[in-house]
Simulated assay, not measured.
Amino acid sequence: MRHSPVLGNSTLLRRTSALAAAAVATLVLAGCGSDETPVAEDPAAETTTAVPTTSAPVEPTDPAPTQTSAPADTPAPDPDALITLDTPADGATVSGSFDASGTANSPEANVPWTILDGSGQKVLHGHFTAEGWMDKLYPYAGSVDVSTLAPGSYTFEVRVDDPSGGEGKPPQKVTRSITVQ
């Protein structure tokens, strides 16, 4: 194609750009309502938008767990609970030592425990260490030595403290009645 001496390079460039834009617009409009992707006759005039794709394999998910109904006298778990206590069961009879376990989201993974006598006085205390903290409930477990306690009824308590001075969630605790033989 010869350039006309009357038209300058900038005028020619504007006309070429306008023609390219019109061609793209025509192709886009022609493709509306069609399942086919339009193809420009001049690939240099075609504008494309990159669509991110992933070629990473999709990992299969575990099948949904089977729901089992809790006994009628068991309260539903609190979705905002920061601590649970799975063992010992409420009313358990223990001697020597017993195992305790549950889940917690406790500052620095520290899960304090206390044993209270019938009058509410602290008679033993200690802590467990959970497997993590901050983003979810993590398992904790340990053994509690009650060999120094006199036989009788006690309350075993695990808790999540609030070291923020009231700025965080309030302290939470879970208790179980135990009988020491």
Rank of each mutant, 00 (worst) to 15 (best):
P57F: 06
S97T: 05
A72L: 03
E108A: 13
I178V: 10
A44D: 15
K136A: 15
G102F: 04
R159Y: 05
T11D: 14
T87W: 04
E59A: 15
T175G: 08
Q67S: 10
T129A: 11
D86E: 14
T84F: 04
A104W: 03
G152V: 00
Q121Y: 03
P170S: 12
E157T: 13
D35E: 14
P5Y: 02
H3E: 15
G132Q: 11
T26L: 12
E46C: 05
W113K: 01
P139I: 02
D135H: 02
S119E: 12
P5T: 06
A40C: 13
T129Q: 12
V123R: 08
D35I: 09
L13Y: 14
G132M: 05
A40V: 11
P75N: 02
V94C: 07
A92H: 01
H125Y: 14
R2H: 07
T84D: 04
N110H: 12
C32N: 05
I178M: 06
T74E: 10
T103Y: 05
T37Q: 13
P38N: 03
S119Y: 09
A81C: 02
A92S: 13
Q67T: 13
S4F: 03
V39T: 15
E59H: 12
H127T: 02
G102E: 07
D80G: 06
P88F: 02
L85Q: 01
V158A: 14
T155K: 09
D90N: 15
L19V: 08
L116P: 04
S34L: 09
V146K: 07
P88D: 05
P151R: 10
D162R: 03
P63R: 13
G168P: 06
G33P: 11
D99R: 00
G132A: 11
T93M: 08
T179G: 07
E36D: 10
T93F: 06
V28S: 09
T74F: 03
Q121R: 14
S143P: 02
T175D: 05
D117A: 06
M1K: 07
G142L: 04
D145F: 00
P75I: 11
V111P: 04
P151H: 07
A64P: 06
R159H: 00
W113H: 04
P60F: 04
E41M: 12
I115P: 04
P75T: 08
T11R: 12
E157Y: 00
A25D: 10
D42P: 01
A81D: 07
G91L: 05
S143K: 07
L116N: 04
L137E: 06
A50Y: 00
G33D: 11
D145I: 00
V6S: 06
T37F: 06
A22E: 09
L149K: 03
T155C: 01
M134T: 08
A104P: 09
P71A: 15
D117L: 08
T103L: 11
E41A: 13
D161S: 13
V28Q: 08
P60A: 07
K122D: 10
P107E: 07
A44T: 15
A150C: 01
W113R: 02
G91N: 08
T87H: 13
P163S: 02
P71F: 14
L137P: 01
S153G: 09
D135W: 00
S55T: 15
S4I: 03
T103H: 05
S69A: 11
T155S: 08
Y140K: 08
E157R: 15
T84S: 12
A70W: 11
F98H: 04
G152W: 00
P65C: 01
